[in-house]
Write a protein that binds this DNA or RNA. Structure first.
Lengths: 403, 403
DNA sequence: TTAGTTAGTTCCTTAGCCAAACAAATGTCG
DNA sequence: CGACATTTGTTTGGCTAAGGAACTAACTAA
């Protein structure tokens, strides 16, 4: 569609067409199955225009006609649904100890979900590119076997990724200034689809915005609960990445000048008082990054058992988290803040405290309508969001060529 | 132009035209004087199209032909400049002890700037509406006398203004749930132009975005330095108001759980440690709100004299401010944070400390490219921004009818 | 004076939306 | 059972507005 962010772009007829194709595509995605008449009535587009747009989308295999309606007055309507069977979007998430690849169709239905262990924390960006390229090639060949065209590939990286897709710093992986997108494109040798890179929290936010239960919220924040704490910010319906792409770095907001020392060297960072590390520092101070999931399971078990010290610890962390989320809510006034990562299994013991603290500290009446929720997308949110990033560009009118 | 924020709107030819008219208008505003050929070359629009668009804009008195270029090879070019002489946009700012009204033409040049003392802090919203309506009527009649058509009026209010223009809470004015826009429209009896209401920090941010020295920054934050501290957030070239319109409430971000008590009742709010009130609490604890400007002048004088205790105080406040701005920069990664209000006269003693603190706490390398600057628009930034809000809607294609 | 250069207009083509008429397929009621 | 109503989707023609090419206009340089 015709957007104008950095200085308005002139428009012409092809933009109108692209906009309207996207409007129809999006409407069907959200209201399938529906008829051409429904689309015309709801979008305000003319029936004739809708017919033409739908024909175009069917030609591209983005829509498909399904049966007719029956038992209604008047001519039965031909119902339309998203097709997208001949397409796939690929998302890859690279992490400390594994790489995940997912592929989804246009509806966002998962076609595959492969996890492969990989010592990301002990590998260079170059080695990671080799591993990712190998995995991506396998995914692509599987998609090709299923007669699907790959629309794009996006990589989610836990770290600072600038607006050009350069990984500036990825502390847990030990990478600096790696042109992942460029190198991966080279490694895939003219893949015929765009390769993008973005921050994991940003992409997880995108996944929530497209697939999550709050998908109708135009303003939402996703918070990763890993060793690092980061946020992805959706405002007015789009990811907002800031001037250089480093928005959402809430992990190092200072909550207490007298707080504990953070791994960044400063004191009292949100990450240091409310990150997963802050929990494990008390329960399992010597845990290695690869044992994180197990250790969190152990914390959950102990909390379930009602162990007093663990419960107190989690309440404490919840309150700190709530203070951080109050800062987020005050600054951004989102409709919902979604807690992800390891905050999900810990939520039963965190959220009540966090919510209380947050609502107590948000200036706007009723917390500005901001709710604190728990992600339902699981640990693969970032990878799913990476695939969603590809679908987003289809939605904004960059349709695959006719076949 | 054809934007799509909350669900894409279908587009048709009139949208294309509106988009392109706005493109040309904006180009001339930023590059005047320039020729039709310049516009075509820079925007990518066809020469014929540009001619047609320019003719349209001249018909509406939005552009005007000025002289020809000379002494150049080839046919001399007819230069174009913004006209806008037959138009005016009105901004009104209501505050604790005065109401300001400004009117600007399309270029943003100030046509008038009236300040009228008004006990906002001791008046009801209803009384304020009466006063504003009286002032607005005088401004409108002056504009009419100058043969200008009023394009719109926006009111800047220090407080929480929701997306529908309802003033939810204005602590310094003591207002709650006042439908200022609606009541003012009624009081003006079918004014023939739109009346809008928004938060003062938001509008000041808009003023900076349009008129300030960083007007090319698509991501900027304006921070008000009054008794309250608030922010206006521009991301990706537009004001971002959050879900209900309450974004930018940074004054009550908690910087120190052990800090001093804030007037909101909580502890260690940014406002309490780095607001203007925090300074005056030390230098003039009994000052009334209406004496603020005088008291600040006194602080400036004492700082100029090199009084040790005042300098220490200001360094301290600067550091707290820097910590708050670090939170802003980490979360939003703007290209620039602009300090306004009373921070401007105090800047020589605040900014160095604030900057140092901020850069020390922003995670992104080089502070994510975020600079800390001082507003150059003066105390009238919000009123100016209110007028800019009107011009913005012209820019987005809502052109006045042909005359 | 002639050639070269740049500006802006005219005229034609084309894309693509809209309105209205129409065709198709069903239910309803006398 | 047939005329009519109702709804869907297509066809046709009209209109808006962008783009391209050719043309005119007005200057400088040699």
């Amino acid at each position: 569609m015709i957007t104008s962010h950095n200085g308005p772009q002139p428009a012409d007829f092809t933009d109108v067409r692209a906009t309207n194709l996207a409007v129809v595509l999006r409407f069907v995605r959200e209201n399938a199955p529906c008829s051409r008449a429904d689309i015309a009535a709801s979008t305000g587009l003319n029936k004739a225009t809708v017919s033409s747009l739908v024909a175009d989308l069917i030609d591209r295999s983005l829509l498909r006609e399904t049966g007719l309606t029956e038992h209604r007055v008047g001519r039965p309507a031909t119902m339309l649904v998203l097709d997208g069977s001949p397409y796939a979007a690929i998302g890859i998430e690279v992490n400390v100890d594994y790489i995940t690849a997912v592929a989804v169709d246009l509806k966002g239905e998962e076609l595959l979900n492969w996890r492969r262990s990989f010592p990301g924390g002990a590998s260079s960006a170059g080695q990671a590119v080799v591993a990712m390229a190998a995995l991506a090639r396998r995914v692509v060949s599987r998609m090709t076997k299923e007669a699907r065209q790959v629309l794009g590939l996006t990589v989610a990286v836990p770290g600072l990724v600038d607006v050009n897709g350069i990984v500036r710093v990825a502390p847990n992986l030990g990478w600096r200034d790696a042109d992942l997108a460029g190198d991966l494109t080279k490694a895939l040798r003219d893949p015929g689809f765009p390769v993008l890179v973005d921050n994991d929290a940003n992409l997880a936010a995108l996944a929530e915005h497209r697939f999550g239960p709050h998908r109708n919220a135009a303003n939402l924040v996703y918070v990763t609960g890993e060793v690092g704490v980061g946020a992805g910010i959706v405002m007015d319906g789009r990811l907002r990445r800031g001037g250089q792409g480093y928005s959402g770095e809430i992990g190092h907001i200072e909550l207490d000048p007298a707080g504990p020392t953070c791994r960044c060297g400063r004191r009292g960072c949100l990450e240091a008082v409310a990150g997963v590390g802050a929990i494990l520092a008390h329960t399992a101070p010597d845990a290695s990054p690869s044992e994180l999931e197990l250790e969190i399971d152990e914390v959950v078990r102990r909390a379930r058992n009602g162990e007093r010290d663990v419960l107190t610890l989690l309440e404490d962390v919840g309150r700190h988290l709530g203070r951080g989320m109050a800062a987020v809510a005050n600054m951004l006034n989102p409709e919902v803040v979604i807690l992800g990562g390891y905050y999900v299994p810990l939520a039963p013991w965190l959220v009540a405290c966090a919510e209380e603290e947050m609502y107590g500290r948000v200036l706007a009446p009723g917390g500005g309508g901001c709710r604190l929720e728990v992600s339902t997308l699981g640990y693969g949110a970032a990878a799913l969001g990476a695939a969603a990033r590809v679908l987003d560009s289809v939605d904004s009118g960059r349709l695959p060529a006719q076949r």
